[in-house]
């Protein structure tokens, strides 16, 4: 009996977390005037809302923009931060600790302080309305450096020394010796970087004004706020669903990695 109540309460919470998503999905495939109410089974199915989204905003283009930006930032972060993390964690050089402290300090730097000056820098570099502003400032991240450094430090010294004796260059050591045994750390950093970049809205809203260059979350935001959706709920929700779908699909396949990565970093 106690067990039944226990599982029942877990189930109630499950519904609390799943139901809104199902409601959203059902709202996008039913006629506009039927939206509202908790019934999630539509009386008739129509894809009118999706058709309107595709007709009104360049959402496919935005999807590929987002994908391009997120993939580039993730690849860049993995390469650069591996190099930096390896140097800080495994090499000896003058001023190494100073650089490590700098990394730790930048981790604590609040976003509010940087926001305006960084935008002005983008203006001065004429990177406004360009992919550069979405990619270049974010390819080096303090969290990624710290996580990779920590993982690299756990690699046995003998392995790296052996590679050095064999005449491996440090770059080859990083990418041929260290990388294959650091897959868990690379996955973690990769997922965190990809997700933060994919979901970022504030920065694109600031630096991108041209519809063709907008990222997907930004375009959906502007669509919902800017009145282009003509306060049609189904259309707004359809845009939101299109934005959520790729991530939810990826999540259902790799949930274990997602949870471990995002929880270890404590990120949103």
């Amino acid at each position: 009996m106690k067990k039944v109540i226990f599982y029942l309460s877990l189930l109630v919470w499950t519904i609390l977390f799943i139901y809104p998503f199902l409601w959203m999905l059902s709202a996008t495939i039913r006629p506009e005037q039927e939206i509202g109410g908790f019934n999630i089974i539509p009386s008739q199915i129509t894809f009118e809302s999706y058709a309107q989204v595709f007709a009104k905003i360049p959402i496919v283009r935005a999807f590929f923009n987002s994908l391009f930006v997120a993939l580039t930032v993730t690849t860049g972060t993995l390469f650069l931060c591996s190099m930096i993390g390896y140097a800080i964690g495994r090499l000896q050089f003058l001023g190494r600790d100073i650089i490590f402290y700098l990394v730790l300090i930048t981790m604590m730097l609040p976003l509010q302080i940087i926001l305006i000056p960084l935008y002005i820098l983008m203006v001065k570099l004429s990177w406004v309305n360009s992919y550069y502003s979405l990619i270049v400032p974010w390819t080096v991240s303090a969290i990624a450096i710290v996580m990779l450094r920590q993982y690299f430090q756990s690699i046995p010294r003998a392995l790296i020394d052996a590679a050095r004796i064999d005449g491996c260059s440090e770059l080859r050591i990083i990418f041929h010796i260290v990388w294959p045994i650091s897959v868990p750390a690379l996955i973690t950093v990769g997922i965190i970087t990809f997700m933060t970049t994919w979901n970022e809205v504030l920065w694109p809203l600031i630096v991108i004004r041209e519809h063709n260059l907008m990222t997907m979350p930004q375009l959906v935001t502007i669509f919902a706020v800017g009145g282009q959706a003509e306060s049609l709920l189904g259309v707004q929700l359809a845009a939101a669903t299109l934005l959520a779908l790729p991530v939810i699909i990826a999540y259902t396949f790799f949930q274990k990695y997602f949870i471990e990565s995002m929880a270890t970093s404590g990120l949103k």
């Binding site: 977390f17 799943i18 959203m24 929700l237 939101a240 991530v247 939810i248 999540y251």
Partner: peptide
Amino acid sequence: FRSVYFMPVVVSGVVITILWDQ
């Protein structure tokens, strides 16, 4: 259960906001 409770975390805040607005 854990992965269900975690689901809203991975979804963009924009989606959550548009949804909860309704």
